[in-house]
Design a protein around this nucleic acid. Sequence first.
DNA 1: ACTCATCTAGAGACGCCTCTCTAGAGATAT
DNA 2: ATATCTCTAGAGAGGCGTCTCTAGATGAGT
Lengths: 196, 196
Amino acid sequence: MAVMATPVSYTREQILDAAMEAVHEHWRSATVAQVSAKLGAPSGSIYHRFRSRDVLFVSAWVRSIKRFHRELEQIGTADPVEAITKTALLIPRFCRAHPLDARMMTAYRYSDLMKDPHPDLLPELTNLNDPVRETIDRLTLARYGRVTPQGLAIVALACRETPIGLIRPMIGDEIPLWIDEAVRAASTAIAQLPDA
Amino acid sequence: MAVMATPVSYTREQILDAAMEAVHEHWRSATVAQVSAKLGAPSGSIYHRFRSRDVLFVSAWVRSIKRFHRELEQIGTADPVEAITKTALLIPRFCRAHPLDARMMTAYRYSDLMKDPHPDLLPELTNLNDPVRETIDRLTLARYGRVTPQGLAIVALACRETPIGLIRPMIGDEIPLWIDEAVRAASTAIAQLPDA
DNA sequence: ACTCATCTAGAGACGCCTCTCTAGAGATAT
DNA sequence: ATATCTCTAGAGAGGCGTCTCTAGATGAGT
């Protein structure tokens, strides 16, 4: 049977929340000391749950990415171009609803993290991008009837790079509603390119 | 009359070049020690010309921004939508021709730097964005016949945010040519939005 | 009561980085 | 030769941030 020992004062989730706030304020130069100040906890309590500063902040990043992935599951493929555009429009919506997660997501890039991943993070990182990859695969097949590198690239630009690019400079401030019109226009235009 | 004293071993430009290389490798966490290693010079020689680490790296950033501005001057306004798209296409071209400058430009944001600018940098920073502002003003007037906040926002999205957003994830690697088709499609689509 | 395990708590070692400071080298003018 | 100025050169002070380590608090099982 489990031994309870002392009650937990600072849960993993609370620590990640504080880390997210610190990143919101200081971005990549956030420190463990800032997190511990926000939490009102000594740094030891943080290092008790996270092996290093990197593991802490990357774990927070992974959590935000996974929150975003939960939004991806609700798009059909009846009209392919429409589906691509709808997927693109999820991004401004998500950033408005979860501004701290949005900012957190800008702090690291998957490709950088995979260059020399910490063993503690490997299991979480390995298949992290699968939901996005699957969505783009599915939309590509619906749009072009086949899956080619070129087709994938176009769909990824239309439903991911474009909205992220348009919104990125505004992350941290409020994201105006008229951005959505621009996202819709740009995404639709790219989705209409041929899979040459 | 000027006294020449000892000949200069490390010019301002050479130091900025080394700083740009360091930023290319380590981005915002580049250090003065890395720059001095690249240059084969002691840190004192760097601090002799730049008052602080910040002044050094921001000066390098300013230099890259100004290099980009030199590209802006060659776009007409005969067909407004076409002119906006052409301006957008300058960005992938510039990033391919000057990859180190492109990466340098991603290291800071004008708005962040202006929050608490170092006195040494103020004169250079104050009017830094004027060329871009003027270009966008000019394109907005050509496109809509008047200059409104909404119109400016649309044109800025079409000729600046969109291409930067599409290219940003690739900065550091080679930027494929087919990106230009996507930039053209997205930029043209946004430029066709009405100034509602 | 006592054992065992988990967690809190915080002092401080250690390393890296920025920046200062001083000695002196090289070039020119007198 | 001497004075004077600019720049190089590099040692090291000082600050900040990460991370370690140990002491002890807490509560469940026996």
